[in-house]
Structures are given as structure tokens and as C-alpha cells.
Design a binder for these strands. Structure first.
Length: 685
DNA sequence: CAGTGAGCGAGCTTCCGCTTGACTT
């Protein structure tokens, strides 16, 4: 029996179905070795020698692989064909002590692709492995050198890294643009016209021979134009008709799926990935962490058949549509995200409910996008009419849908406007002329969707990390979501960004990753060594770091207050401790008095001591809970937010749970209800 | 579920990219 090792257990399962008895297929669950997390694990003095360990989490998996390796005749490493996959293969061969490992690759999980791959094994690509090592070690050096710098100069627990620091920077800079934005006034002038039917045209140019673009900056200018138009005749100057096409977008890849799910379903990137994971495990979609638009020929033929059978021949474009990656850093180890069986229509999955509602919604989106990608373009009849009035030109634009094409399956918004049939020289009746004042708008804060788009464009982060990046910068409290789920920097985020921007501009440079990616490519092509690349980066970095540790002062984060210390009558100040801000006496260490900064009371008397009031508090891990203001005298506390109501049955205080339902805070009382309701249900069925 | 800062010095915080559970409500 031969042993094949892949990265994902679901992939292993699928492949073993294709191959049958002669093979055992197991998975590594991603990387099996890494640098230790407790120390830097890189000896910069010894040519950047890395120290790899098997993380505790990976140990049981590695043990299984070791045991199975002993039983197997031949070991075949079938990890993904990209930089990380090659490195995983190498780490596996090291850990499992493989003398001559066979390495195979495939880009689609189909029987033919795998059988073909098995016929042409190769050796592990050492250059590609070294490119990965350079990437890994660079990230470790940046992260584990800059973070401690921030601990020393700002406060403990902060972090910096090649990816998270740039993501934070983007959000901070957008906020600055918004803050510094000066709105500019401008005016538009619309003519409501009539010829057989009403339509409207916008003023856009003056002196049609020279075509000056017209900018109206204020009311005075607008009034002047209106005055000049008072006696004007409106005459058709030009009519242009043409057919325009709208082409379908490519099938989803991780980044575009996350963007569409935020916009169309209001799912966060994290939630989207969790749902996609389940769809993948249940066998409904192909792998969901990918940067490739490739589609298996099989799937495209299935799409063709489905399109022709369900919508008709004219909805099939006549050729198989292929989409190319725009991103230079794409590694294309997988297919695009598509339904594994295109003829599994979302509507047919509703009745015997194999999918949860959210799974079905996401599956539907993936299915539609994939099928649409293989469909014919939509066709519009568009028309542009120029109308002259005095020295001014108005333009009316119209379009009507002639053929819906792919829009039948993947609908997007468009406006239709049917203009009347007009001929050059015709005179048009003016109904009304409408001037309106506008102001230019500042750019919008990033949403998860728009930030991921920029990160991908700049080659920062990978499909497997877009969602975690968003989590990290929020968990570190650099960024938070506003009421519209848009990303805005916190004070901490701004502080850290300012510090990094001022002292380490080369690291938080938007281009930094792209530059390093070029270097990694050189290593992968054998044109440069990984040690030299790291040396070129690290030598100057180390020197700058040394200088900055000396020259940069620790930030003073204490704040003055009017509060007087009840013990020594000294002034109280606000200090920043491990668990956030607190009041401390300025006479410290002579006076050790401290007080927590209380959140406003909820106006509810403590049900336990009847003296204190309930207030919002936070645990050391920053989780919110509600406790008595007289702590430590009274230890009453709740996780859920209390409301000023009491349980009619047990008289405990009521709380609002996460589902925003008002329930009794007494667990025993609640359990009684739950048991009752379960019994009721059973009776009915 | 609840503590904090100085300094002493111990022990701890931290990166990115691959992959999924095992806890409990």
C-alpha cells in the first residue's frame, strides 16, 4: 500500500474515493513544523539558522503519519503546489525521515488529474522551500523585533507585523483623509424635456466646437447659465446609438467571495469562511481558500449543458470562458471556488434540508456566480443624445436591456431609460430646468470588503489570512467597527501607526510586501540565496532598531484629572495598566490608592445587597460583565445585561441575552422552562 | 468574572501562513 499525504482531511477523503484500495490517503492538517512561539527561534549570527519544532497541536497528527509511514510501501507527498505547500512537503520529509520522497501536484481534484499526477512524480523543489523559509523568517524577525519595541515605548501587549501594520496604516490614513477633507461646492443643471414623452438631459459642455468641460462652482455661476438659457431653443445636435455589452465576472476566489458576501448577504469575512468550510466539508463546493480563477474542464462542460438545457442555446456564449488572475502574487494551487456538482441547483436543495439557511444562501451565491461566469454577456441598446441650447450642450443617456444573458442567473443592479426616437435638427420642448447644489464627498471608511480588495491588490496577505487579519487588528484594539460596520482606527491604533510610520517607514510601506515577494521569487528561481536576502534586509533593520531603542522616548500615557485622592488629598491621575485605564494617586509610590474608572450605572439596584447599583465592568480579558458597584463588599455579578424586571416565578433579576431576549438570570429556573418546552415538542410530534 | 503603577528581576506579551477541531452554551 502506498501512502499519499495532502494538507486537508476533506481533500484526503475525496481522493481516497477516486483511488480505491492500493492507496491510503492521509492529511497533515496544514503545517507540521514551525518556529517556536516563545522565543525568536532564528539565530541571526549563524546565517539565520531557524529552529523548527512540532507545535503541540500538530503532535498527534504527526504521530499518526509516522505510524502509517512505517506500514507504507511508498510515500507520496501531494501537498498544494505553492510556496507553503512545497515547504509542508519538505517539513514532512524531514519529520518522517523520508529518504527519497515522491512529490506530486495537481490543481483540480478529479480522478483524471490525480491519476495523471501519480504518473509523473518529481523531487521536492528546494529553491521554493527556501523562498518559503525566507518569508517565514522575515515575518518572524519583523514581528518579534518590532512588537517588543512597542512594549518598551508605548505599552505591553502591542504587536506589529508586515501585514497587520500595513492594514492598520491603510485604515488610519483613510481616517485622516476623511478628517482633512474639505467639501467643494458644485452645481448640476438638469433639463426636463418633452418630445412624445418626457426625458431628462444634463448640462455638460459649453461651446460645442471646442467642448469646454463645464464646471459650475456656485449659485452665482449657475444663475448666470440659467439667465443665458432663458430664451434658448433646444435642438437635437447629435444622436448616437450603439449596442453595449456587459460581461460576467469570473467565478469566485477567496477575496471576491468575501467581498460579495459582505455586500450581498451582510456576512463578515470570518463568518463567510466558516460557512464555506462547512460547504466544502459536506462536498458542495471546491476548496475555499484560493487565488486562482481556473476551472476544471469537466465543470465547464457541466455548466454548458446546464445553461443550454435550462435557459436555451443563446445563453451559452459558444466558447468556454476563461478568466485570468490580475494579481502577480497568485500561486494558483487550487481551482476557483465553484459548486462541485454544478447540476446540484440551489432550489433543489431546499426541501430535504441538507444545508442550513445560511449555508444555502452562500451556496446559492457561489452557484450563481459560477454558472453566470460561463454564460453569454448581457446586451444593452444604448443611446446618447446631445441637445444644443444657445452655446450649451445637454446630454441624455439611455439604455434598455436587449438580452439579459448572464444577468438571468447573477442579477446586478442597472437602470433602464428609454429615450424617445429623435432626429438631428429636431426642436424639443423644455418643461422645466432644474439647478441643484452638491458638495463633493469625502472617501468612505473601509468596509471588510473594500479593505480586502486593497490588500489583495497590493499582494498583502493570502486567501487563508484575509479574514484573520481583520480579526487580529480588532483584537489588538487598533481598529473597531462603526455603526455601519466600517473600520475606523482607535486611539491605540493611531498611536502605534504614528510610531511605526515615523521610525520604521520601510516596514509599514505599502510596497514592502510586493518588494519582498520579488526577492522571494528570485530565491525560488535559484537566482539568490535565502540567507543573502535575509541579510540584506536584516542588517540595516537591526541597526535602525538599535538606534531607535536609544533615541525614542517612552510615551507618557498618563492623563491629568480634577479628582482628589481620598487618602492623601493628592491629585489623582489616569494611568494605563495591564487591564486598561484606572485612577491612581499621583503621589505613588508614597500613596498606593487606586480606583477603577466606573462606567455609568445602569440605574438598577443590586438585587443581592440592595445598596449598590449594577454597572458595566470588564474582565482582564476585556469581556464585558455586569457587577455590583460596591464590590468587593458585594460580589453580585452577571454576564448578560440586567434589565429592571424580575422573574414572575422565582423573582430573580431578568437579563437580556445575546439573542436580545429578556430571560430570567436564574439558570435553574430557566432549565425548568426548557425541559417543559422540550416535553411539549415531543408530545406534538 | 475584580486588577493595574516605579524599580528590583522573574515570566509574559508578539509574527504570517497552512489546516481544523475540542471546549461549552
Amino acid at each position: 500500500m502506498d501512502l499519499i499525504i495532502v494538507e486537508s482531511p476533506t481533500k484526503a477523503k475525496t481522493i481516497s474515493q477516486f483511488l480505491g484500495k492500493g492507496y491510503s490517503v492521509l492529511s497533515s492538517f496544514g503545517h507540521v513544523r514551525d518556529l517556536p512561539s516563545s522565543t525568536i527561534g532564528v539565530d541571526t549570527a549563524k546565517n539565520f539558522e531557524p529552529k523548527y519544532i512540532i507545535p503541540a497541536k500538530a503532535k498527534p497528527k504527526v504521530k499518526i503519519l509516522k505510524d502509517e509511514t512505517k506500514k507504507a510501501k511508498e510515500i507520496i507527498l501531494a501537498t498544494d503546489e505553492d510556496r507553503e505547500g512545497e515547504a509542508i512537503a519538505w517539513h514532512l520529509s524531514e519529520v518522517l525521515n523520508l529518504k527519497e520522497p515522491k512529490r506530486i501536484v495537481f490543481h483540480e481534484i478529479t480522478k483524471t488529474a490525480i491519476e495523471k499526477a501519480l504518473k509523473s512524480p518529481r523531487k521536492i523543489d528546494t529553491n521554493l522551500v527556501n523562498a518559503q523559509q525566507a518569508r517565514r523568517i522575515l515575518d518572524r524577525l519583523v514581528g518579534y523585533k518590532l512588537s517588543p519595541f512597542l512594549w518598551k515605548k508605548i505599552m505591553r501587549g502591542l504587536s506589529a507585523g508586515r501585514v497587520q501594520s500595513v492594514a492598520t496604516r491603510l485604515i488610519c490614513e483613510r481616517e485622516n483623509e476623511i478628517k482633512n477633507f474639505i467639501p467643494a461646492e458644485y452645481w448640476s443643471i438638469e433639463a426636463k424635456l418633452f418630445k412624445n414623452k418626457e426625458f431628462s438631459a444634463n448640462l455638460f459642455a459649453k461651446n460645442e466646437k471646442t467642448i469646454e468641460k463645464l464646471e459650475i462652482k456656485n449659485k452665482k455661476e449657475a444663475d448666470k447659465v440659467l439667465q443665458e438659457l432663458e430664451e434658448a431653443e433646444y435642438i437635437v445636435e447629435n444622436v448616437e446609438k450603439k449596442e453595449t455589452q456587459r460581461n460576467p465576472q469570473g467565478p469566485f476566489i477567496t477575496s471576491t467571495l468575501q467581498q460579495a458576501a459582505v455586500i450581498k448577504l451582510n456576512y463578515s469575512a470570518k463568518r463567510t469562511m466558516a460557512i464555506a468550510q462547512r460547504l466544502y466539508e459536506k462536498g458542495f463546493i471546491t476548496y475555499h481558500r484560493t487565488d486562482s480563477f481556473n476551472l476544471s474542464t469537466q465543470s465547464q462542460m457541466a455548466a454548458k449543458e446546464l445553461i443550454i438545457n435550462n435557459f436555451g442555446k443563446n445563453y451559452w456564449p459558444g466558447v468556454i470562458k476563461k478568466f485570468k488572475t490580475r494579481s502577480k502574487s497568485a500561486q494558483e494551487a487550487h481551482e476557483a471556488i465553484r459548486p462541485t456538482h454544478p447540476n446540484q441547483m440551489p432550489d433543489n436543495l431546499k426541501k430535504p434540508a441538507k444545508l442550513t439557511p445560511e449555508e444555502l444562501k452562500l451556496y446559492n451565491l457561489i452557484w450563481q456566480r459560477f454558472i453566470a461566469s460561463q454564460m453569454a454577456s448581457a446586451v444593452f441598446d444604448s443611446c446618447s443624445i446631445d441637445i444644443k441650447a444657445e452655446c450649451y450642450t445637454f446630454r441624455a443617456n439611455g439604455q434598455t436591456l436587449k438580452f439579459d444573458g448572464y444577468l438571468k442567473v447573477y442579477p446586478t443592479k442597472f437602470e433602464e431609460m428609454d429615450l424617445p426616437k429623435l432626429n438631428k435638427g429636431e426642436k424639443i420642448q423644455l418643461k422645466e430646468i432644474v439647478p441643484s447644489q452638491h458638495f463633493t464627498q469625502p472617501p468612505a471608511r473601509y468596509s471588510e470588503a473594500t479593505l480586502i480588495k486593497v490588500l489583495e491588490k497590493e499582494s498583502i496577505g493570502r486567501p487563508s489570512t484575509y479574514a484573520p487579519i481583520l480579526d487580529t487588528i480588532q483584537q489588538r484594539n487598533y481598529v473597531e467597527k462603526d455603526e455601519n460596520k466600517r473600520l475606523k482606527p482607535t486611539n491605540t491604533g493611531i498611536m502605534v501607526n504614528d510610531m511605526l510610520l515615523k521610525h520604521f517607514p520601510q516596514i509599514v510601506d505599502i510596497q514592502f510586501t510586493a518588494k519582498m515577494e520579488k526577492e522571494f521569487d528570485e530565491i525560488a528561481q535559484g537566482k539568490d540565496t535565502w540567507q543573502q536576502t535575509l541579510k540584506d534586509f536584516y542588517m540595516p533593520f537591526e541597526q535602525i532598531l538599535k538606534d531607535k531603542e536609544q533615541s525614542v522616548a517612552k510615551m507618557d500615557l498618563t492623563e491629568e484629572t480634577d479628582k482628589i485622592c481620598p487618602e492623601c488629598k493628592g491629585k489623582m491621575i489616569i494611568r494605563l495598566g495591564r487591564y486598561g485605564k484606572f485612577y491612581a494617586c499621583s503621589k505613588f509610590p508614597n500613596c498606593k490608592h487606586t480606583e477603577p474608572i466606573a462606567k455609568p450605572s445602569l440605574g438598577i439596584k443590586c438585587p443581592k445587597c440592595a445598596q449598590g447599583e449594577l454597572t458595566e465592568k470588564t474582565t482582564r480579558t476585556k469581556k464585558i460583565f455586569y457587577g455590583c458597584s460596591l464590590w468587593p463588599k458585594c460580589d453580585f455579578a452577571l454576564w448578560d445585561k440586567p434589565v429592571n424586571e424580575f422573574c414572575p416565578k422565582c423573582h430573580s433579576i431578568m437579563v437580556e441575552n445575546k439573542a436580545k431576549k429578556i430571560i430570567c438570570s436564574n439558570r435553574a429556573c430557566l432549565n425548568e422552562d426548557r425541559i417543559k418546552s422540550i416535553k411539549k415538542k415531543n408530545k406534538i410530534s
